[in-house]
Write a protein that binds this DNA or RNA. Structure first.
Lengths: 217, 217
DNA sequence: CGCGCAATCCCACAAACGTGCGATCGGCAT
DNA sequence: ATGCCGATCGCACGTTTGTGGGATTGCGCG
């Protein structure tokens, strides 16, 4: 029995053969990991991974046929406990968010140096969510938007933002009014303006616009 | 002009004097950072930080008086470009997301070893969002919830989830009914059940419960 | 088989909400 | 000073929601 028995069992999904071979070589030559599968398409991965004993998958986004994101979605249904990490050159909002929503637990850019990549695999396996620096910041920023960026982004005045916060808590107009020490009529006027600014026609739409999870629904 | 001129200028907000002194010592003895302020309360930090030339702030959550989270909120108003990192023992959902929503760019647990802490300060200063492994996973999981876990988490039936999705889009009952090919009365009945299950009393509350950004509001 | 439960439909009433107006006041910029 | 804008208050009207009943169908589970 060699040390390989205790290594993290990794599979690759990457369409570029040289890159795939390089990653395989890197992983097999590390003390902590072993590559138990390397696939060039999502279809191939989906067909063969269920038969493998493995812990984590490194996934490219841009694949011929089934995209890496769709591949994650299906892999998660087949093997919910699998830890999947994106490894890609893309860092646009949509692809980051869609990958995470599909079930990726980590997101590394391909510029990541080899030693950091191996570290990330270990961290992923230990229950972490390794992300490249740029990705982590993007993720964190989505939480900050309602607090700091909403004003500039939505054009709401401070008072109007307070009103929307009341809406989000499910307060009635009269409750918002009491909370802010103003009359219900004023609340209604503010709402009138808020709806115009946000181009919505109901409290629910307004709240979603300001506090909704990006991409949800 | 010493090397200190190029170091990252850090301030501390931490109420425990020994811990504060230890951190100060750690930072001052690192080649990359220098501690330019150490405060025991949020009030003190808010009063003195505006007069300091600094890049980043390390913030404890539990402070006497103004909480660390409130302190972040106010600091961000005073100095929007400041990079703030939480340094705390708490890893509960509310405190993590309230901190991020308030404007924290990083979140480390106090168990972080000293060398990792210094690395994190550098990464923060370079535009990253260092998070302890546990924190990163919690953050990533919030994006996964709407895709996979919402059903189990809320106890809503598939049909009921469709209804809530309609609410989140701001649809009127009649629009939801048309969209799903059922009558308005049925929509109302479903809503009745949904409100009971989620313990809410309005569409806005229901939508926030299912689609709201965690910690927002 | 009966029981529970999701899903469907119906009614009536009260409360809350959205819309369109008009109006005053203070601050800030032109 | 003139004018714009945010914040405040008011009213009328129609629409939408929330609440509290009642009722049927079909499906799965013990």
């Amino acid at each position: 029995m060699t040390a390989a028995a205790n290594r993290i069992r990794v599979a690759l999904v990457e369409d570029d053969p040289p890159v795939r071979a390089g990653l395989r070589h890197l992983i097999d030559n590390s003390p902590s990991c072993v590559c138990v599968g390397a696939f060039g398409t999502g279809e191939e991965a989906l067909a063969k991974i269920p038969g493998l004993d493995l812990d984590t998958v490194l996934m490219d986004i841009q694949l011929p046929g089934v995209s890496g994101i769709e591949c994650i979605r299906r892999l998660r249904k087949l093997r919910p406990k699998l830890a999947i990490m994106m490894l890609t050159v893309f860092e646009d909002h949509d692809r980051i968010f869609q990958s995470l929503a599909a079930g990726a637990s980590g997101y590394l850019l391909k510029q990541t140096p080899p030693d950091k990549l191996l570290e990330a695999i270990v961290e992923l396996h230990r229950g972490g969510s390794p992300m490249s620096m740029q990705i982590a910041r993007r993720v964190v920023e989505t939480f900050q938007q309602p607090a700091s960026g909403a004003e500039a982004a939505t054009g709401l005045s401070p008072r109007e933002k307070e009103i929307v916060a009341g809406l989000a808590r499910g307060y009635l107009y009269k409750e918002i009014a009491a909370h802010l020490g103003i009359s219900v009529e004023t609340v209604r006027t503010h709402l009138h303006h808020i709806y115009e600014k946000l181009h919505v026609r109901s409290r629910t739409e307004a709240v979603m616009r300001v506090y909704g999870r990006p991409g949800a629904v």
